[in-house]
């Protein structure tokens, strides 16, 4: 399957979606000029991946900032993962937040309330 590798900028996150190497990660800052255009290929990739996923999928979010428009698209990603989980796949979400960033920690808690999928919060030092 095609690998998605997007290098982050000061307004778009780094994205790695690599089925063979089992890397699924979004990190950095997200306030793209056009959120839909930025996230569309990622959502499409997940649709394709969902048809034939690995035996286990650990999806990592390691964001330091995202705007409200991105928050909606992040939920769309999580909902696709939730759907895969409901279909019997082994899915784990890892939500990384800087240890002093309560807002990012709380954002993770909120997402875990909304979607029904195994969710792990991981704090780290920036």
């Amino acid at each position: 399957m095609e690998v998605i590798k997007i290098k982050g900028t000061d307004d778009t996150p780094s994205v790695v979606l690599d089925k063979d190497n089992e890397i699924f990660e979004i990190s950095g800052r997200s306030l793209p000029e056009d959120v839909t255009t930025f996230y569309e290929p990622i959502l499409n990739w997940l649709d394709e991946y969902a048809e034939n996923p690995n035996s286990k999928t650990v999806f990592s979010f390691k964001l330091v900032y995202f705007n409200t428009a991105s928050s909606k698209l992040l939920l769309d990603i999580l909902m696709k993962l939730e759907e895969m989980y409901e279909n019997g796949n082994d899915i784990l979400i890892k939500w990384y937040y800087p240890e002093d960033d309560e807002d990012m920690e709380e954002a993770g808690e909120e997402y875990s309330d909304i979607v029904d999928v195994p969710f792990e919060q991981v704090s780290y030092v920036l």
Partner: peptide, 15 residues
């Protein structure tokens, strides 16, 4: 976030 839709201008009604 759950119920709202992204507007054609890319707003999520969350600002």
């Amino acid at each position: 976030m759950r119920e709202g839709r992204l507007s054609d201008k890319g707003g999520a009604g969350l600002g």
